[in-house]
């Protein structure tokens, strides 16, 4: 007599099915950790930031400078310094990064590319504390002080140049990926019309890779704004800063303000809200970089889907 195949047989071993279910629960739980981390970040920042903003004297948010232990929380001081330093960084990183990316993607022979690209990636792997040290001990005395004789040892200029060196490889690698993603057929169409390589790069490859290039710049800007160590070490003003627009002055960014308060670099007698102000600045920083990253992700998705 042949054996009848039942539904029970087809469903398989119960032990195996149970294990399958347990394993899946484990993976879902691991995935939820990231969501939990996000929620914890937002809660810890928002809680203290709220207690800061509800207790602080609002007029102290717009004064002569950022001196938290004296109760002067001039937010514009931090925003201006952050903008100046990130701006100088971008002025360095955009030409260097884009130039390196275009050369690697369009001109370099495969052999040259094999050692040029890892070299650029080495630069990307240098920790920011090293660049901070270098900005303070080399860029500041050897570069900034030689060009601007009036410059002090700690300047936003030196920090901005250091940040530029930090984010150049980021612009280079992300833009290079975008240019590599432009299909060969577009270049060939351009050559077929009689254009040479330079014209093709400028009029065909650049526009086609534009969303990726823009994404790399926004990403770099976000990194520049969130960078702590270079600014903390090279821009000085660890005890607070006056509001200034001069890049040759010391300055304190949002990140450096947090680091300075947390390490107690400004050892003036404490005042009630200094601890909370740290989280308020952190929340501000979090929201700005979150907005920039979402924008950059949107551009990246666009160039991924285009071809």
């Amino acid at each position: 007599m042949t054996q009848q195949l039942t539904l029970e047989d087809l469903a398989g071993d119960a032990k195996r099915r149970n294990r399958e279910r347990r394993v899946k629960v484990l993976f879902v739980a691991a995935g939820l950790v990231s969501i939990a981390v996000s929620i914890l970040i937002i809660l810890s920042l928002a809680g203290e930031a709220w207690s800061f903003i509800s207790q602080v004297d609002l007029s102290s948010l717009w004064t002569v400078g950022w001196f938290p232990r004296r109760g002067l929380y001039d937010i514009p001081t931090l925003i201006i310094a952050t903008t100046i330093i990130a701006g100088i960084g971008m002025l360095v990183a955009i030409p260097l990064g884009l130039g390196a990316a275009a050369y690697l993607a369009e001109y370099a022979s495969p052999r040259a590319r094999r050692w040029l690209k890892p070299t650029v990636e080495i630069l990307a792997g240098i920790p920011s504390v090293v660049l901070g040290f270098w900005a303070l001990t080399f860029i500041s005395p050897e570069v900034v002080a030689r060009i601007f004789s009036s410059a002090k040892p700690f300047t936003m200029m030196a920090a901005g140049l250091g940040v530029g060196v930090l984010i150049t490889p980021l612009v280079a690698t992300v833009s290079e990926d975008a240019m590599k993603a432009v299909p060969m057929s577009l270049r060939e169409a351009s050559y077929g019309l009689g254009a040479d390589r330079a014209v093709t790069v400028r009029k065909v490859v650049f526009p086609a890779a534009l969303s990726g290039i823009v994404a790399s710049m926004i990403l770099a800007l976000s990194r520049a704004i969130g960078e702590t160590m270079i600014v903390f070490m090279a821009a000085g003003a660890v005890g607070g800063a006056l509001r200034t627009f001069n890049p040759l002055d010391p300055g304190q960014t949002m990140t450096a303000a947090i680091a300075a308060l947390a390490t107690g670099s400004d050892q003036v007698a404490g005042q009630g809200l200094t601890f909370q102000s740290l989280f308020f600045v952190g929340l501000l920083l979090f929201l700005i970089t979150l907005a920039l990253n979402s924008l950059s992700n949107r551009f990246v998705r666009k160039y991924r889907e285009q071809y």
């Binding site: 990231s34 970040i41 969130g226 920083l285 979090f286 970089t289 990253n293 950059s296």
Partner: peptide, 15 residues
Amino acid sequence: VRNLAGVPSIVYGLL
């Protein structure tokens, strides 16, 4: 995950 990857490191320090 993508948003977390872009959060400045010092914010994790605050956490």
